[in-house]
Amino acid sequence: MSTPLLEVDDLSVRFTRQGQEPFTAVDKVTFNVAPGEVVGLVGESGCGKSVTSLAIMRLLARRGNQVTGSVRFAGTELLTLPDAAMRDKRGAELAMIFQDPLSSLNPVVPIGVQVSEVITRHRGENRAVAARQAAEMLDKVGIPDPTRRLKEYPHQLSGGMRQRALIAMALACEPRLLIADEPTTALDVTIQAQILALLTDLVEQSGTALIMITHDLGVVAGLCDGVNVLYGGRIVERAKRHPLFAEPRHPYTGGLLGSIPRLDGDRDARLFPIRGSVADNIPWDHACAFAPRCHQEGEKCRTVAPDLLPDEEARTDGGLRLLRCHYPLTAADRQRIEEGRA
């Protein structure tokens, strides 16, 4: 594998808000993104996936958030970069799109101005050139009649078109890394399919690396090269997508897969959910946070915090496979669950 574009090393985010217990939202998260690679961060609400992305983009408020560790982008440490230098990088080299396209766009500024602003800001183009490039960009993301759309305001576009406009803004300066935080969660499935297809195309054409943050394993299955599964602020499992879905090793990953009704699955198969909710987590200090919800729980789970270690007992497909579990799922376990469900 080539040298990584983004190296996230022991990234931790601790919320220290007034009048509240300090809370570690992201706990020593480490992962790399190679140029052009699509990396997934998957997990449920509260697993720290969004906070991770905001920390990488340095979009967390200084006050009340303690960010430690290191984030190197093309060799430059981002966490210690002066604010002005970081602003230059944001939008030009790293860009981000969010779940809610309406609140991410300025409601009183026309789409065209918002897109061309990015171009004038980072490319120093004059306004006419920027406007032309903005129109090209809108066309590229599949917004029909782009020159007319430039003058329209966000509320005049549908949800799908807004997300396209946002993608146009994010990709206007051809960034080397795009972070997409639940980009399709607020959209309908047919629109989601359009947006995912668009993202895949653009990323492939331009060689942009993509960090896809989502709760939807279905989205990950079709899109990501490597997948990181997060739970309680830590990465619990990492693998390439094929081996991950074929042989989930962490009980949480397995539980997620058992919880999703599959469109092509056996309709009579009963779902095998994870019990409880995130509220039942215990601290990672001397235990596995997932233990209270885990079907595989054993004696070490509440006394020893598991480490993220290379996992060689399962299919790796030549990629790095990591696992944070004392008692991972075996083929026999998976078989047992399948039989129970059928």
Binding site: G276, P292, R293, H295, E297, G298, C301, D333, G340
Partner: peptide
């Protein structure tokens, strides 16, 4: 299946209080 938490290779349930406090389905 869910309650027989004993994973292969471990003596499930002998860990004392810890295992006994697994949450119910609803949390």
């Amino acid at each position: 299946l869910a309650s027989t938490a004993a994973p292969s290779g471990s003596s499930g349930g002998s860990a004392g209080g810890g295992v006994a406090t697994a949450v119910s389905d609803a949390g």
